[in-house]
Design a protein around this nucleic acid. Structure first.
Length: 300
DNA sequence: GGTACTTTGGTACACGTTCG
DNA sequence: CGAACGTGTACCAAAGTACC
């Protein structure tokens, strides 16, 4: 491919966003002829047409769609560059974080609370969702970082990296009134016990299913939850035994009036921060990743 | 055929580089 | 330092294309 310049790409990007050269010319305050000419030069630089005429308008070709994805990245970076050059503290003052539903809120809190420390100057914006949804948002820059309990799928097209934050063994909890019933011959006492389980998409669920199978225990699953907070609320309501990371056991015992019955030996929940490499240049993202382990396990 | 839009050809200007 | 030259970008006018 021959060289291309920022102006060619900006005209292309505006036309792609506006849907026609005429509307792009109004946005850019440049005559349509000029834009048309520059698009032709960009076609030549790329070696393939980027638009195809459909009626009176233009539609992106497959190559055009690919170039548009790169242009999105380039102009997002361009905006960040302008901010950095203007002397901002960070490329973005808002840290947009996606959190997988199944991660305990207390874990998320431990990882993220340094971001909103009094002197950080950052504003935190959190959304929850499925990993696939969050990775899609990450790919179009709506998110800077995703907190997940499992690695990115191997076949995903998202250009990002898994950063290990640490892990925690999994404990099983119940109401204090039921602790004697389950504690004595744990874990065999869980056989037939009412159990609240994470949703089938979560990593903890798969680990627990394997553990029950190894222990030859068949609990009576009374409910499944994608949302970890809702699972604990049902546990607090004495709906059944529930699993949670042992790293936050004191908080769970205090907030949900629950007690640890015992550990699910060998079952661990892993925590990962998923982020594009260039986002690591954002000090807030870097701080989250670098400080996560001490925040997750302060006693360790 | 009128309208809206894109494409093509010609031309002008600004800017950077080269050379005397 | 200034002229000559090349390159990139802008404009206008006119032609081509598609829709209503």
């Amino acid at each position: 491919m021959r060289h291309l310049n920022y102006s060619h790409l900006q005209y292309f990007w505006t036309v792609a966003n506006e849907g026609s050269i005429a509307r792009a010319s109004e946005v850019l305050h440049i005559t349509p002829q000029t834009i048309s000419g520059q698009l032709k030069l960009l076609d030549e630089a790329v070696g393939e047409p980027l638009f195809q005429r459909v009626g009176r308008g233009l539609e992106l070709t497959d190559t055009g769609s690919l170039v548009k994805q790169y242009a999105d990245d380039i102009f997002t970076l361009g905006g960040e560059l302008a901010q950095v050059v203007r002397g901002r503290q960070a490329a973005s003052q808002v840290l947009n974080v996606g959190i997988v539903h199944s991660i305990a809120k207390l874990i998320s809190y431990r990882v993220l609370h340094p971001v909103v420390a009094a002197d950080s100057g950052m504003r935190l914006s959190c959304v929850e969702g499925d990993l696939d949804e969050l990775l899609a948002d990450l790919s179009v820059h709506r998110l800077d970082l995703v907190l997940s309990d499992r690695r990115m799928p191997v076949n995903t097209s998202v250009k990002a990296y898994n950063h290990s934050l640490g892990d925690s063994p999994i404990a099983l909890f119940c109401k204090p009134t039921a602790i004697r019933r389950y504690k004595t011959d744990f874990p065999q006492t869980l056989h037939g016990a009412p159990m609240l389980m994470p949703g089938r998409g979560s990593a903890m669920r798969r680990e627990l299913d394997d553990w029950f199978e190894r222990m030859k225990i068949e609990p009576r699953i009374v409910a499944e939850f994608d949302d970890s907070a809702l699972l604990k609320m049902f546990g607090a309501g004495d709906a059944g035994v529930f699993p949670a990371p042992h790293a936050i056991a004191p908080e769970i015992e205090r907030m949900y009036s629950a007690r640890v019955i015992g550990m699910a030996d060998g079952v661990r929940e892993t925590y990962l921060a998923i982020s594009p490499e260039r986002r690591l240049k954002n000090p807030a993202v870097l701080a989250v990743i670098e400080r996560a382990r001490e925040q997750l396990f302060p006693a360790a």
